[in-house]
């Protein structure tokens, strides 16, 4: 599925939630079920420091696709990471570098990717795109 198709799928899923509680219960569930990052990558090199919560991100090129794994010490941050990984993991480096992640806005989570939130998520998205750019060059 393309970056856009997955985003549309998520937007459609979120449209069924009646209120913020259902939405956050879902995000918390996603956070709890996010596959745990390999412990060897949970180090300083893979750490994205936020003021409020911390994020670890690891990327790997498998064939033409980039596989991301990630973790956070905060469960809501982890849930949003799960969504970002669902959209970007398994995509080509080029599609990752060029991705317009409009779904975050559409499902009402923009506040979590604002620079003032400092939970590491905005830096994480930037880092994912940098991986996309860098891995494009590896390929070519």
């Amino acid at each position: 599925m393309s970056v856009q198709d997955i985003q549309e799928e998520i937007i459609s899923e979120f449209s069924f939630f009646g209120d913020w509680m259902e939405k956050y219960e879902y995000i918390i569930d996603l956070g709890k079920n996010l596959p745990i990052i390999d412990v060897q990558y949970k180090d300083e090199d893979h750490l994205i420091k936020g003021c409020q919560s911390q994020v670890w991100l690891q990327a790997e090129l498998k064939g033409d696709e980039v596989q991301f794994t990630a973790d956070s010490d905060a469960i809501i941050t982890k849930g949003i990471i799960a969504l970002l990984i669902r959209v970007l993991s398994g995509q080509s480096p080029k599609d990752i570098a060029e991705a317009d992640l409009y779904f975050i806005d559409q499902i009402g989570l923009r506040e979590h990717l604002s620079p003032t939130r400092s939970n590491g998520l905005l830096s994480m998205v930037k880092q994912m795109k940098i991986y996309g750019l860098a891995l494009q060059q590896v390929k070519s």
Binding site: M21, C51, Q52
Partner: peptide, 21 residues
């Protein structure tokens, strides 16, 4: 419970607290 998670949900309930260091 991570303080950031607790603060985020309290905010949704209209309760402004500070979380972090």
């Amino acid at each position: 419970v991570h303080p950031f998670d607790l603060g985020t949900l309290l905010d949704k309930m209209g309760i402004a607290v500070r979380t972090g260091h």
